[in-house]
Design a binder for these strands. Structure first.
Length: 828
RNA sequence: GCGGCGGUGGCGGAAUGGUAGACGCGAGGCCCUCAAAAGGCCUUGUCCGCAAGGGCGUGUGGGUUCGACUCCCACCCGCCGCACCA
């Protein structure tokens, strides 16, 4: 008899062909089929097609596929689509280097992604596949942009923007890292004044913050979003420059310290700085300082440990609470992008203001006393940022606890017209224009007569023209396509020029999950009925690197589109799961390190099932995992053993006549194996619900170990049942081999079989091993009946030989009985 | 500095306050074989002991409890996010 040999490549090819031929994973928008509650939308973040998929993709889609399969087996109709975030800089940079059109290189990459995703056996509804670079998709990206434009949520503004000198493009704040470097190329970013397109996400700051409470996302992602939104409560207080009759509002979270404000500082970027010193003796010095400050990198400027620098403006403003004239300075520790770009400085109660005051020998006045207004106030160290009682303010406020005074002072300011309570956010409006070629053109025309004119909807898409030269020149490469740029204004029929900037690719990916619901609609971005069937996404899966940008933008889009009447929900992703990174030898995989593990080579060697199982078995999926070739081999051995024993058992049992059923009268080893199968069913079901895929796979391993151990002593039909159960439970992780095994053992398609149910009665045993402790230490184990009384358990424990040895000669103080678990005898 | 997460064998990792180390990797021994590969069986936290058994053991120090990897307090270390945000 020839030994049966597990051949993953042959098995996987066979099932993949069947699933492709029968379009097994496609779902329709059948509005009648049980409604939204019996549907599930499982979505992994769409890949950026560059080169070929890496191990991180394998982990993401293995994870999502397990969830998709589990939901299907629970009887839900599952939408599980795939697409490509196909616009973007890497393809364009590649084009600059090689001259290959981004459309061509992107298409090649997409083809490779498709090929590999299919070779992994991921259960995707390929009929809904899309790429954001297709005109049939970006036509609707442009339509959304115009909807935002028409409602005032997209606008053009001259702004100090982050500019990457290498990529020759403007960047969003979010695309500049903490060191002031371009997220993509790592070069230091500069600041330039340019007219750009923005989306008014700041209008949604409060809702983006509050609605986090209602969604099932990881705590750290919510925290990151909250930090990024950066809400602070305080007051806006007006400081007036009487000489020039200009009011300068500032934002402060500490209006209670207003009496301690002894100077006033503006950001170097503040538009009034030069105006304030024009024609004065300070003009030259200020000019020099501002120049230096603006040329500093964010890295240098953002360092909190840096000594404070600045120069006086030679002007004063009036402190509204006490009428004092306080001097104005310009200093780079004040940021233009936060608050109003100017601050009141309270050196006694703010670290930074204190450092500045010491450096410039400015007065420091304590207005809060931690000791409660005692004579010892002056002995307390400064700066003091905690709470206390107001001192040195005015008869009206002195002696009040500062938190109380805060409200009083704001009320007073409001009454006097010198300020009001205010909320400030760190979140900035989203800069979406890019001076690059490979993106969706912004569908706006510039007409000398009519100004900014939206391209009429019936003329969408504004197609990206072919060009020969992608080299960035500080303006969009599209500007060179004269025939394309010059057009006619639809309003006045006069000459008009097309907007030559393209959109940030984050715009493309902010709504793709909507398009999957209705991907072929040529009349609209989507049919609201289709969205009602699937949205919001039940389970979204992706890397934590998108915790802020993509997830915030997508949430913003849904809220804005809901306000415009296009959606009837506001949060796109009901639940989010963030997967951990896959490392090699503890380090991030990268070409420069030379430690990249290619999924294709693994699949070729041990098959997709082993690769997928391993990546989920290695540890909890939300944590980082280190790739180990030996570990993959171990999982491959497990699948081999499973398949071989199943194939042998199938031969022994003859042709299957349907799913095996357990013999309810099983005894001895048959009962042991039957119980193990039900235990595994229970364990895997629970583990799948809590994303504990590693322990779920371990449970199936245990089941197989018992099958192997008992293979010659149990009834072959029981073995058949246990192995079919193992295949059924493992199917979400290793679909091909499990489909193969299930067919051999049950003659049925495992994905059409309902998820198995664990029999409660078989999970309980009539006897169990009672743990016997003395003073909390394990001393013996004895067999106990499940229905034994507490007294009986106590007697059993005391009768255990090794318990007696430890109790002998001592006084029993008490006995703790935990039925089903243990007895603890406390002795003295 | 602030916020979040984590620290368990040689390694990845298991453990609703109740047998610490499931499952896997690695290692050692054995079987099969002319031999190897593949496969199978056994051992594997650590120390003492021939064994039975016992001591120790989840970053450190305290605490709560009959009982703590798990809960509380303080600290050390590591990772991630934010950071001159007024």
């Amino acid at each position: 008899m020839t030994a049966l040999q597990y051949d993953p490549l042959q098995i996987e090819a066979r099932w993949q062909q069947l699933w492709a031929r029968e379009r097994t994973w496609e779902v329709t928008n059948a509005h009648d089929a049980g409604g939204r509650s019996s549907n599930a939308y499982v979505l992994e973040m769409l890949p950026y097609p560059s080169g070929e998929p890496h191990i991180g993709h394998l982990k993401c889609y293995a994870l999502g596929d397990a969830i998709a399969h589990f939901n299907r087996r629970l009887g839900r109709r599952v939408l599980h689509p795939m697409g490509y975030d196909a616009f973007g800089l890497p393809a364009e940079n590649h084009a600059i280097k090689t001259g290959v059109h981004p459309r061509v290189s992107t298409a090649e990459s997409i083809a490779e992604f498709q090929r590999q995703f299919r070779s992994w056996g991921v259960s995707i509804d390929w009929s809904r596949e899309l790429a954001t670079s297709e005109p049939s998709y970006y036509r609707w990206t442009q339509w959304i942009f115009l909807e935002l434009f028409r409602s005032g949520l997209a606008y053009r503004k001259d702004a100090a923007v982050k500019w990457c000198p290498f990529d020759q493009t403007v960047l969003a704040n979010e695309q500049v890292d903490a060191d002031g470097r371009c997220e993509r190329c790592g070069n230091l970013v500069e600041v330039r004044q340019l007219e750009q397109w923005f989306l008014r996400i700041t209008d949604y700051a409060e809702r983006l913050l509050n609605d986090l409470d209602a969604i099932d996302w990881p705590a750290n992602v919510k925290t990151m979003q909250r930090n990024w939104i950066g809400r602070s409560e305080g007051a806006e207080v007006v400081f007036r420059c009487d000489e020039l009759a200009i009011d300068y509002p500032v934002f402060t979270t500490r209006p209670d310290t207003l009496f301690g404000a002894t100077f006033f500082v503006m950001a170097p970027e503040h538009p009034d700085v030069m105006r304030l010193v024009q024609g004065t003796e300070h003009e030259h010095e200020v000019h020099e300082y501002v120049n230096v400050a603006l040329n500093e990198t964010n890295e240098e400027r953002g360092n909190a440990d840096k000594p404070k620098t600045g120069v006086p403006l030679g002007r004063t403003v009036t402190n509204p609470v006490n009428g004092e004239q306080i001097p104005m300075y310009v200093a780079d520790y004040v940021l233009m992008e936060y608050g109003t770009g100017a601050i009141m400085a309270v050196p006694a109660h703010d670290e930074r203001d204190y450092a500045f005051a010491r450096a410039f020998d400015l007065p420091i006045r304590r207005v809060i006393d931690p000791a409660g207004g005692s004579d010892a106030a002056d002995d307390q160290p400064l700066p003091y940022t905690g709470d206390g009682v107001l001192v040195n303010c005015s008869v009206e406020f002195d002696g009040l606890p500062n938190r109380e005074a805060l409200g009083e002072i704001v009320r007073w300011l409001d009454h006097e017209g010198k300020g009001h309570a205010s909320v400030n956010y760190k979140l900035r409006d989203w800069l979406v224009s890019r001076q690059r070629y490979w993106g969706a053109p912004i569908p706006i025309l510039h007409c000398d007569e009519c100004g900014l004119v939206p391209v009429p909807d019936d003329q969408l898409p504004v197609e990206l023209p072919d060009i020969d030269d992608y080299t960035p020149k500080g303006r969009s490469p599209l500007a060179a396509a004269e025939d394309w740029v010059n057009t006619t204004c639809p309003q006045c029929d006069g000459p008009a020029r097309r907007e030559t900037d393209t959109m940030d690719t984050f715009v493309d990916s902010s709504w793709y999950f909507l398009r999957y619901c209705d991907p072929h609609n040529e009349l609209a971005a989507w049919d609201p009925e289709a969205l009602r069937e699937w949205m919001p996404v039940d389970q979204y899966i992706g890397g934590v690197e998108h915790a802020i940008l993509h997830l915030m933008y997508a949430r913003f889009f849904c809220k804005a589109l809901a306000d415009l009447g296009h959606l009837d929900f506001e949060e796109p992703f009901q639940a989010l799961f963030t997967q951990g990174m896959v490392t090699k030898d503890g380090a991030k995989m990268s070409k420069s390190r030379g430690n990249v593990v290619s999924p294709a080579s693994i699949v070729e060697r041990v098959g997709a099932d082993a690769a997928r199982c391993y990546i989920l078995f290695v540890g909890p999926p939300d944590q980082d995992a280190d790739w180990s070739d030996a570990g993959v081999e171990g999982v491959h051995r497990f699948l081999s053993r499973l398949w071989r024993l199943a194939a042998e058992t199938a031969e022994r049992c003859g042709p299957p006549s349907g799913a095996p059923e357990a013999d309810t009268g099983a005894r001895g080893d048959d009962l042991v194996l039957l119980r193990k199968a039900h235990w595994a069913t229970d364990k895997v079901s629970g583990d799948l619900r809590r994303f504990a895929f590693n322990t779920a796979i371990a449970a199936v391993m245990e089941l197989l170990n018992d099958c192997s151990r008992l293979r010659d002593t149990v009834d072959p039909q029981m073995l058949r049942f246990a192995l079919a159960t193992a295949a059924s439970l493992l199917f979400p992780f290793a679909p091909h081999v499990c489909a193969d095994i299930y067919e051999r053992l049950a003659g049925e398609r495992v994905w059409e079989a309902p998820w198995p149910n664990a029999d409660e009665e078989l999970l309980e045993r009539d006897v169990y091993e009672l743990v016997c402790q003395v003073n909390g230490k394990l001393r013996d184990r004895v067999e106990a009946a499940s229905d034994a009384s507490e007294d009986e358990l106590k007697q059993l424990c005391l009768a255990a030989p090794n318990v007696q040895a430890h109790v002998d000669g001592k006084q029993i103080v008490k006995e703790v009985v935990v039925p089903g678990k243990l007895v603890n005898v406390v002795v003295r």
